[in-house]
Every structure is written in structure tokens, then in C-alpha cells.
Design a protein around this nucleic acid. Sequence first.
DNA 1: TCTGGGGTCCTAGGACCC
DNA 2: TCTGGGGTCCTAGGACCC
Length: 430
Amino acid sequence: MTVFALVDANNFYASCEKLFDPRLAGKPVVVLSNNDGCVVARSAEAKALGVPMGAPWHQLRDLARREGIAAFSSNYPLYACMSNRLVEVLGQFCPRLEVYSIDESFLDLEGFALQDPEGLTGYGRKIRRRVRDWLGLHVCVGIGPTKTLAKLANHCAKKGLAGADGVCDFAVMTDGELTSLYHQISAGEVWGVGRKIAARLEDMGIKTVRELHDADPDTIRARFSVVLERTVRELRGVSCLNLEEMAPAKQQIMSSRSFGQYVYELAELREAVGSYMGKAAEKLRAQHSVAGAVQVHIRTNPFKPKEPQYQRTATVPLPSPTADTRELTAWALRLLDDMYKPGFAYQKAGVMLCELRPQSVVQGCLFSAPAVDEQSEALMRALDAINAKWGRGTLRSSAEGITKTWQMRRGNLSPAYTTSWEDVPCVRAI
DNA sequence: TCTGGGGTCCTAGGACCC
DNA sequence: TCTGGGGTCCTAGGACCC
């Protein structure tokens, strides 16, 4: 019998911001998306004020002033560092662990019931306590026989359903208790059921988790897909989704950003595309892959339908796959030059590396130089090593430019408390 | 003034093959 | 009344997740 736990940090980004600034205790805090665009995380106090997830920040300015909401630009180095610490702590409780997102991990707890006199529920409480004591973060733990049920249990733990206090263990609940619990939760809360599918299910008379649980898997497969069929089976306790301890190599790598201000000139777009490619290529090499195709996209602001609109996406297959920033950048800029049209206010650009494959199994090309270019590989290794030691962008391609007027806005960035010596918090006796 | 970024998987439909 | 059957590959689009 499989047993999974899902451990999920509460209000993760907002909690990270609060951790290192005691003045924020008890205050509403929100974290904004790139470019300070919209709200991506809210503290409990901000949620209580009714700040919706995903709301454009400029629409909330008045409320924020009135209520004293503190807003932060996304500080990913800080969140990533805290995330790594969280995973480290969780790893002490369970070696079989899947890092599902920056603030969520699945644990395979099969065979762990004897680790605590109170069984897995007690083990879950122990996990919560240690994360709180060691990191200052609050997590909820959901336990169930499948990943989908562990996710659902985690939802119950967060909402305090079924008397849960941060830990919700479906395994210790009776069928009757589960049935009445499932009756209270709408189907849209289930992992894998988004807005569209929830609406279609409702048309079929399926509104609650209970009703989805009771639905006929074959009918669900016929009307939706094999994915939703698996969800139904998982709700019934049949484990269809395995723990993925090793993250599989990415099949595509994207890097794109909205600009801090509109961009009109080709020269500036070239800098942006060059920079994004620098970042994407670095990620590509980090997973020891090469790319077989390059895609570039540019667009104006779709939220301004009255302004002239233009958007293009173009892809080029490469003669031979590569991970060399110079080569990838050259192809990307060629695409950009072809699709650029003057006279538009560009708002966003991006690059995507596709047809990724392991560096070790590259197919040579009959007509060009050998696929493995040792000079290029050595150069890229040196580039990555220098940037790893001295910081990203220390050594970069000249295509990235110097001034970067198009860079995103980050008006209220908190210090890199845990990743930069200059920003380490100081405690002073008064 | 102002609206994120980065992924995955599945399906449908068309082209083409024997 | 009755228009073959079975496959692959590719692309676009849609849905989901955090």
C-alpha cells in the first residue's frame, strides 16, 4: 500500500520576506510578479484584506496605501535559497522525496508508520515542528495513499477541514468521514482539475470531490482524457502517479521577460534577445544538453488593444545541435532581424531552446565540421565556471549590451539576505 | 503609467506512406 | 446504403500546474 505526504509551505514568498524583517510581523505583505506586475503571493493578513491572487498591482494601490500593505518585488535568489533549506530538512525525514515546486515536496512515506508512536500523523507533526523551529517557515502536511489524495489532504490541512491542524492524514479517517469530507469540497480543488474542466464537470452534474470520486473512469476518459481518468482513479486510492525522485531533463528551455518600458528599436531588442539566450544557454549546459532548434518571439502589449498590435514567433532548426552561446545567439538574432518591424511598441521578447538532447549522443552532420567541437566546449566550460564563481553576467557575450534600458522594473526588492555578503542581516545591541 | 514566467502532457487533424 | 485499413509524423491548440 503506497503512502505519500505532500509538504507545502504556507504563503511561501510572503513568508520568506517576513522572515528577515521583524517589522513585517502581523502586517499584510504581498509579493509581486516580475516587472512588479501582479500579486503572486500574499501573507495571511493580506488574504484577510481580500487581496486576490493574480490581481494587477496598479489596481490595488489605493487599498495598499489605506491598509499599509507592504509590497515586494520577486526576490528569487532568496526564495530559492530558503527552498533548498526546506528540502534539506525534509530529506532528514524521508530519503525518497520529489521536489515538486519551489515550495512543495512529495515524500514517499511507505514503511514510516513506526517512526513515531502516533504513526504518520505524528511524523507529520514532527516535520512541521522542525521546519518551524529551524527555518521559521510554516508548512502543512497532507497524507494519503496517492499523490492526488496527498494533495487533497494538504488542502484540507491548510483550510483546517476535518479538524486538521496543519496535518491531515486520510489514512486514519474512516470511509464515512472521508465521504462526508469529500462532499464539502468542490471538484475544482482537485489537483488536475482547472477552471475549464471544473465547468464542464459541473455541466455533467459533478460538483464535489465525492461526485468526481464516484464518476465512471471510462466515461471520464471518453469525455475528457486519460489524464482526468487517472485523477479519478487516484481519488479512489489507486496510485497512478509515481514519485519522481530524479527530475528528468527538460525538453525545452525558455527565457522571456516583459520589458520595464516599451522598446522600439531593433538594437534594443537584439540586446534583450541576446541576454535571454545567454541565460537559456547556461541552463541548457547545466543539464548537459544541446539544442536542435531555436525559437524567438516578440510582441506588443496585448492589454492595449487600441495600440497597433504585432506579434511573431519563428523557429529555426539548427544544422547541428549545440550548446554554444555564440552560435545559439547568432541564430536567434537572425530570426529576430527577419521578424522585426519598426513602428511598434514592443512589450515582451523571449527565446526558447527546443529539441533538446543529451550532449553525449549528438548525431554528426555529413556536410559540416565534427559535431563535437572541443574548443567551443572548453570555452563554454570556462564561461560557466567564471560566472559561477563571480556571479552571473561577469563574463557575457557582447550581444547582451551594457545599458539594458529595457530591463524589468523591480521597484521594491528586498536584500539578498542569505546569498550576498553585503546583505547579511546584522543584529545590533541598543 | 501599470496585467509574470516557465513548464508538461494530451488531442485533433492533416499529410503522407504502404 | 455501403468509398480500405493501419500506421507515422508534425503542428497547433488547449488544458493543467506552480
